[in-house]
């Protein structure tokens, strides 16, 4: 199987932080996923770089969310799912025999399409993951909660009501809270499954700006059905169609001059 190398970025383009040749952080190798007999992911091979934003695009049902959920093994929750091939993160096969899924999910966080804050206070939402993994000291918790809320561009809006219910926040604020909750435990990778699709345009813009900030510290993989969004915020883009990876390249290349006809047709709106 040919080694897939990260495509070189034209020197005249802005260099995405941390990208370039070198050991990719996530290596997906000949991955196939079966729901029972039906093959939802077909022999996907892909390498994702560190501290960049990679976008998965494609029409509904193409498998992009399924692939995303393979990266933190959330697909384990579904009955009848079978995996072939491998996914390795930081050099370790995450579907290997001795893998502790709990540890994996500490290192690979996730933000969902529909924001899902716990019916607890804002503070308790962010502290949930921290407490889970053993942090007890109140001042330490206070510090990390504040840092995470700042990191999610939410601190100024909620600092005076940390102990009020999270459900009282607006949709955009709730989603940023979910991001704060996810980054509180300092994962290396943050997976985002259409994080802004349920939000109004202004809230969406704030989330996008946030992602551009976050990529300085985290590796981000985002699934989006909004191509302009992918063009705006991602450094690399992977295009999927019916479970197959059709093309993977720098975002600029995919959106100005894709190599494959299918990609061109999808991106210009001729289908899907």
């Amino acid at each position: 199987m040919a080694e897939i190398i990260l495509p070189k970025i034209n020197a005249l383009q802005t260099r995405p932080a941390g990208a370039g040749p070198g050991e990719p952080l996530i290596k997906i190798n000949d991955l196939s996923l079966f729901y029972g007999a039906s093959k939802a992911l077909k022999n996907v091979s892909l390498h994702l770089g560190e501290k960049v934003v990679t976008a998965f695009i494609g029409p509904s049902g193409c498998g992009k969310s399924t692939l995303l959920r393979c990266l933190n093994r959330m697909n384990d929750l579904i009955d009848n799912v079978r995996i072939e091939g491998s996914v390795s993160i930081g050099g370790h096969d995450i579907y290997g025999d001795n893998v502790d899924v709990i540890e994996l999910r500490k290192r690979v966080g996730m933000v969902f399409q529909k924001s899902n804050p716990f019916p607890k206070s804002i503070y308790e939402n962010v502290a949930y993951g921290l407490r889970l993994h053993g942090m007890k000291d109140k001042s330490e918790l206070d510090g990390v909660v504040e840092q995470s809320l700042r990191g999610a561009a939410l601190w100024d809006e909620v600092k005076d009501r940390l102990h009020s219910s999270a459900l009282g926040l607006s949709g955009g604020q709730q989603q940023r809270l979910c991001i704060a909750r996810a980054i509180a435990i300092r994962p290396e990778i943050v997976l985002m499954d259409e994080p802004a699709s349920a939000l109004d345009p202004i809230a969406t813009t704030r989330i996008e700006e946030l992602i551009l900030e976050l990529k300085k510290d985290f590796t981000i993989v985002i699934v989006t059905h909004n191509m302009q969004q992918a063009a705006r915020i991602s450094d690399y883009t992977a295009f999927f169609y019916i479970g197959e990876l059709i093309e993977f390249d720098t975002t600029t290349r995919i959106f100005t001059n894709p190599a494959k006809r299918q990609t061109e047709d999808y991106v210009t709106g001729r289908f899907g």
Partner: peptide, 11 residues
């Protein structure tokens, strides 16, 4: 969604 959020945090 609440269960997924909790599990995704490593619970």
């Amino acid at each position: 969604g609440l269960r997924e959020a909790s599990l995704a945090l490593g619970a």
